[in-house]
Amino acid sequence: MAEDSGQEKTEEPTSKRLRDAKEKGDVARSKELATTILLLSAAAAAIMFGGQVADKMAGMMKFNFELDRQAVMDPAAMFMHLGYSIFEALYACLGFFAVLLVAAIVGPIALGGWNISMKAMAPKFSRIDPLAGIKRMFSLKALLELFKALAKFLVVGSLSFLVLYTSKQALFSLGSQDIIPAMSHATEIVIWAFLVMSATMILISVIDVPFQIYDYTQKLKMTLQEVKDEMKNSEGKPEVKGRIRQLQREISQRKMMAAVPEADVVITNPTHYAVALKYEQGGGGAPFMVAKGGDFVALKIREIADQHEIPVLSAPPLARAIYHSTDVDEEIPSGLFKAVAEILAYVYQLQRHKRRQGPAPKAISEQLDIPDELRRDE
Rank of each mutant, 00 (worst) to 15 (best):
S5T: 14
E23C: 02
D372M: 07
T10Q: 07
P311Q: 13
L299W: 09
E280W: 04
S176T: 15
A319P: 01
D26F: 01
Y348A: 00
M121A: 14
Q70E: 13
A44N: 06
Q357Y: 05
K24A: 03
I202R: 05
M57Y: 14
L162W: 14
R127T: 14
P130R: 00
F65W: 14
Y216N: 06
G358Y: 12
I179T: 13
P270F: 14
V99I: 13
K300M: 08
R243L: 14
M61T: 01
A103C: 10
F296M: 15
Q246W: 05
K152Y: 07
R254A: 09
A44W: 12
L18P: 00
A274P: 02
Q7W: 10
T217M: 02
I304K: 11
M57D: 08
R320S: 04
T166V: 04
V328H: 03
Q169D: 15
P311V: 08
I189A: 02
P130T: 01
T223A: 05
R375N: 07
I86Y: 09
M78G: 08
E188C: 01
I267L: 09
F65Y: 12
L318F: 02
S314T: 11
G95Q: 04
A193R: 08
L224G: 14
I207G: 01
A170N: 04
K56Y: 13
L368P: 00
M118I: 04
T271G: 06
D129Q: 07
E88V: 15
M78H: 10
D4S: 11
N115S: 02
A142D: 00
Y214H: 11
Q349G: 00
G284S: 02
